[in-house]
Amino acid sequence: MTRWARSSEFYVGLILLLLFAIIGSRNGAFFSAANLFDLIRSAIVPGIFAMCATMVIISGGIDVSFPAIATFSMFSATKLLLAWHFDGPVFVAFALAGAIGLCLGLINGLLIAYFRLPALIVTLGTSSMFSGFLLTFVGSRQVSNLPASLDRFGKLQVVKFAGEGGITVGLPMTVLFTAAIVLAVAGILKYTMIGRGIYALGGDPVSAERIGFSAKFLQCFVYGFVGLLAGIAGMIQTTMMRSSNPVDLLGTELLIIAAVVLGGVRITGGHGSVLGALLGLLLIVTIQNSLILVGIPSYWQRLVIGALILVGTGIAAYQIKRSSAKRKSILA
C-alpha cells in the first residue's frame, strides 16, 4: 500500500464520500448548489476554529478557550465601535477584534510557556475568566443594532443567484476570510521554520529544544496566533448573525476538537494536517446539517450528535493509550 492510502486523511475522505452517497441517495436535494453552499456557510466560523485547534494540538498543547476569546473579542470590539459611533471600513472592526484576541491568546501563551502550567488547566481557567470578565464589565445584553458598515458587510455575498422556487442562494463575503486563513495556516505549518518547529515541539519537546527551537517562543506564537484567529472568527460571527451576543459560540470547543481529532490530528501532538482537520470538520458539519434531509426525527438527532462526539473523543483516548504503551515498551 502506498503511503497516502494509509493516512487518516484518506480514510476520513472515504467515509465522507460514503456519507455523501448515503444522504444523496435518500434525498437528491443534498447535491443541489443550495445545499452545498449552506454546508460551506455553516463551516465558515467552525472552519477557523478548526484551524486554531489543529495548530495547538499539533504543537502538543490543547486550547479550550478559543470560543471564549472569539466571543470576548467580537463583543467588546462591537461595543467599542458603537461607543465611537464608528462608520468606517470594516477592516478596522476585524483588526480590532483580532488585536483583542491576540492579547488574550498571549495571556494563555505566557502562562503556558513561562510558568509551565498544563495547557488544559490554563485555557479552562482563562476561558471562564474571559467570559466572566466580559459579562461583568463589558455587558451582558445582546447588541442587535450593529454599526452600519458592519451591517452592510454582513449582507454582502460573494456569489448569489436565484435557485429553484425563487430562493436566493448565496455565500457571504466572510467565506473568503476562512479560505485565506486556512491557506495561511497550511502555509505556515508546511513551509515556514516556525511551522516545522511546531511539529517538532509536539513530537518531542526535548529534541526540539536540542536542535535549536525555542519552546517558549513557539508556544507564545501558537497561542497568540490562535487568539488572533479566534478574534477574527468572532467578528465574522457577528457580521453573519447581524448581532453580537456575549454568550454566543461558548461550548462549541468540544465538537471542534472532536472534528479535528477525527481528521487525523493526533491529540498527543506532532502529527496531523490542515487537510485532515478540514475533512473531519466537514464530516461533522455534514452530519449536523443533513439529519432533517434524511428525515431523522428530532429525538434521534441528539443521539447521532452524541455518538459522534463519543467516536471523536474515543479515537483521541485510544491514541493516547497507544502512544503511552509504545513509550513503555521502549523503556522495557
Binding site: N27, A29, F30, S32, N35, D38, M241, L293
Partner: peptide
Amino acid sequence: SEKLRETLKA
C-alpha cells in the same frame, strides 16, 4: 437559521 435552511431544502 441552519435548521430552517435545511428544512427548506427537504
